[in-house]
Amino acid sequence: MPTRDPARLVVLVSGSGTNLQALLDASADPSYGARVVAVGADRDGIEGLTRADRAGVPTFVREVAQFSSREHWDRALTDTVAAFEPDVVVLAGFMKLVGEEFLGRFGGRVVNTHPALCPSFPGTNGPADALAYGVKVTGATLFVVDDGIDTGPIVAQVVVPVEEADDVETLHERIKSAERAMLVENVGRLAREGFTITDRKVRFGSD
């Protein structure tokens, strides 16, 4: 029986790269079914790039300020990512919105996480908004990126209880821990099993 090649992951980061590290660690096991073939960033000098360097993974930086317009940046990012022939693109703490050209090239194969249970509390302050609202549970969501803000079809979600003594920092740390585990597990499944999207429903397995 022929051995299936591991799925090719391109991971985009903006900061410390803890989600990236979790993917690098998981992909070191051949049974995971995916490997990180490149790591890109929107700024230089970040720990995420250092993690990739330590793992021997090629890196690149595309800063918005280097380009005459956001559209030119998006086109350059798209072309650079495409050169690595990814099966899945993972936005792992990537703090820029990818644009029309990027989604036109990789649409349906780009995943991102959000530190809340979508569609609740979209945007950059999910844990703080959940705490302020007084919810008893929040969590994290893995979704397929579309042209909205945290609005894409949901791949997986994990629930995190809100404790009485929580502040934004303690809650966010517990969410991030659960988020990493969810990301690793489900990116592996996407790689090994394939997936389809019908009427916003993401199903593992290929038709």
Rank of each mutant, 00 (worst) to 15 (best):
D29V: 13
D29F: 10
P30V: 12
S31F: 05
A34E: 01
A34R: 00
A34S: 08
A34G: 02
R35T: 13
R35K: 14
V36F: 00
V37P: 06
A38N: 09
V39L: 02
V39G: 00
G40I: 03
G45Y: 12
G48T: 11
L49A: 07
T50C: 07
D53W: 12
R54P: 03
G56S: 14
G56P: 09
G56V: 14
P58V: 12
F60D: 05
V61A: 11
V61D: 04
V61W: 07
E63G: 06
V64G: 00
A65M: 12
Q66W: 15
Q66A: 15
F67S: 06
F67G: 06
S69I: 14
S69T: 15
R70W: 09
R70S: 13
H72Q: 14
H72L: 15
H72D: 15
W73Q: 10
W73C: 02
W73T: 05
D74L: 09
D74K: 07
R75L: 15
R75K: 14
A76G: 06
A76K: 04
A76N: 05
D79F: 08
V81P: 02
V81W: 00
A83R: 14
A83P: 01
E85H: 12
P86K: 03
D87Y: 06
V89I: 15
V89Q: 01
V90C: 03
L91N: 04
F94L: 09
L97H: 10
V98R: 01
V98C: 02
G99F: 13
G99L: 12
E100F: 13
E101L: 12
F102M: 04
L103S: 03
L103T: 04
G104R: 12
R105W: 01
R105M: 03
F106V: 07
F106G: 02
F106Q: 04
G107N: 08
G107T: 08
G107S: 11
G108R: 01
R109C: 03
R109W: 05
R109Y: 05
V110G: 00
V111Y: 03
V111H: 03
N112H: 10
T113N: 03
T113P: 01
H114K: 11
P115V: 12
P119Y: 13
S120G: 10
P122E: 11
G123R: 10
T124N: 06
T124Q: 10
T124V: 15
N125V: 03
P127E: 10
D129H: 11
D129G: 11
D129C: 11
L131R: 05
L131E: 00
A132S: 14
Y133M: 08
G134K: 12
V135A: 10
V135F: 08
V135Y: 07
K136R: 15
K136Y: 05
K136W: 03
K136A: 15
T138R: 05
G139W: 11
G139E: 11
G139T: 13
A140V: 10
D146H: 06
D147T: 15
G148T: 11
I149S: 08
D150Q: 09
T151V: 11
T151F: 10
G152D: 03
P153W: 06
P153C: 09
I154C: 08
I154K: 08
I154N: 05
